[in-house]
């Protein structure tokens, strides 16, 4: 394994370097917790590695209605924020479940999206929170829902010279992230379930990780939850619908059928926890049938 490391300090410089390199010649390095692993296994052999570490994207800020997270911010910085746990509990849980503290001091949200792992612990919660992704490239800046950016493992819809600049989330939402693993820490989830309750669109959002080709929302299961206060029966139906519709991975961590059984339990649990987290005052009236 040998490559040249380039460390641009401005986004323009980074995009320029990518624009001028041939396909496959240059790989983009975020925190490196996943990419370096691929390099070790010789899964990829780029001539150059473009480090994003010196770009001014290691920030996060709360705005009136949103949380903006720079793509290269280490996850540990978010974890320490005093507001995140109460405002976006599902995101806090998902972040705390990535690797270990020493891994989270490097791992980034941009890297997580860019790598698009089907078993990412962050992608399901970003999907249910309607995260938007700001992308910079040779033609300027564009912003898309996270669902449109993700494709499959190690593939996104980003152009060859485009980079993820930041991720934009609602400032608060009752939400939950739960998972099942062989080991609780330093392991990859067999399945991950994210649920959020949003004020607009379909209120209930359910997304699963551990699917092929990648995590996705289960609109079929969401459709079962028509009211703000679903009944136990509806919750059970939603859980079964999620398990029935999802296309699970079958790998060394769990078989497809085991994942399917797990999901019925986890979806139920995530909806119930989210209900408990929805404050009474802001709870909308029952949606019309």
């Amino acid at each position: 394994m040998s490559f040249q490391l380039v460390q641009p300090s401005t986004p323009e410089e980074a995009v320029g370097l990518l624009s001028r390199s041939a396909a496959g010649e240059m790989a983009v390095l975020g925190g490196g917790t996943d990419l370096l692993f691929d390099l070790d296994r010789s899964r990829i052999a780029p001539k150059k590695l473009l480090s994003l570490r010196k770009l001014p994207w290691r920030y996060f800020r709360w705005e009136a209605n949103s949380l903006v997270i720079g793509s290269t911010l280490p996850l540990s910085a978010l974890e320490l924020d005093p507001h995140l746990r109460s405002r976006l509990p599902g995101l806090w849980e998902a972040i705390r479940d990535v690797g270990s503290p020493a891994l989270r001091s490097r791992a980034t949200i941009g890297g997580n999206l860019g790598r698009c792992s089907p078993v990412s612990d962050l992608i399901p919660i970003l999907l249910v929170l309607d995260a938007r992704v700001r992308i910079v490239g040779p033609t300027g800046v564009r912003e898309h829902p996270v669902d449109m950016v993700l494709q499959e493992s190690r593939r996104t819809s980003l152009g060859p010279a485009e980079l993820i600049e930041s991720v934009i989330l609602p400032a608060s939402a009752p939400s939950t992230y739960v998972w099942q693993r062989v080991q609780p820490v330093n392991d990859i989830s067999q399945v991950g379930v994210a649920v959020a309750f949003l004020p607009e669109g379909p209120h209930w959002r359910i997304a699963l990780g551990g699917l092929q080709p990648r995590a996705r929302r289960l609109s079929e299961a969401e459709a079962v939850l028509r009211s703000a206060r679903p009944t136990h029966f509806e919750i059970e139906l939603a859980a079964q619908e999620a398990a029935r519709r999802a296309e699970f991975v079958s790998d060394k961590r769990a078989t497809e059928s085991y994942r399917r059984r797990l999901v019925t339990v986890l979806v139920r649990r995530a909806i119930q926890t989210t209900l408990e987290r929805a404050p009474l005052a802001s709870r909308p009236r029952k949606a019309p049938r």
Partner: peptide, 27 residues
């Protein structure tokens, strides 16, 4: 493990525990 899974290589980078097996020295 050299894959970020065991913590044996932990060092501090600017005071933050960091897995030195997953960091390029030049960075």
């Amino acid at each position: 493990c050299r894959t970020g899974g065991c913590g044996a290589c932990t060092v501090l980078v600017n005071g933050e525990p960091t897995l030195s097996c997953l960091v390029l020295s030049r960075e």
